[in-house]
Design a protein around this nucleic acid. Structure first.
Length: 127
DNA sequence: GTAATGACCAATA
DNA sequence: CTATTGGCCATTA
């Protein structure tokens, strides 16, 4: 159930962390979102990149330095990926005023607009 | 040497 | 709503 590692794991992870550091407090990015913001390494098949890069991002977050706001990265469903430490992640987000409904956040409300982009004005939450 | 298992996602059934 | 499937590797025990 895994597909490949980046050719240069260190270089890839560094890019992931650089992006994650830009996620503002109280905003959420998804693994796939960050993956799409990083260009595919030249020696990787685009299809392979598309399917495996979200996991590379997950792996990068598992190994991130202390100054990376790892708690702001969730899965595409707006949920915390199940693992040891999920409860801690939820607690940290709640400290940032991120609200959960049935263990899910409303991505249409909380999702980060992207690097060097103004955050979209917040629409009314759907719940 | 084998075997288990990872912070994913989109499309289906 | 939940479950399954394809994608098909590196690391660790």
């Amino acid at each position: 159930m895994y597909f490949q590692d980046p050719p240069d794991k260190q270089a890839y992870y560094t890019q992931v962390w650089a992006l994650a550091r830009q996620i503002p407090l109280g905003r959420i990015a998804t693994y796939g979102q960050l993956a799409k913001l990083i260009p595919a390494p030249s020696d990787i098949d685009p299809n392979v990149y598309r399917t495996s890069s979200p996991r590379w991002v997950g792996n990068a977050m598992a190994a991130c330095p202390d100054d990376v706001p790892w708690q702001r990265v969730l899965n595409a469903q707006g949920k915390i990926s199940d693992r040891r430490g999920a409860a801690r992640q939820k607690a940290l987000l709640q400290l940032e005023d991120v609200e959960f409904l049935n263990d899910r956040v409303d991505l249409s409300y909380y999702q980060w607009a992207g690097p060097n982009m103004p955050d979209a004005p917040r629409q009314p939450r759907l719940f």
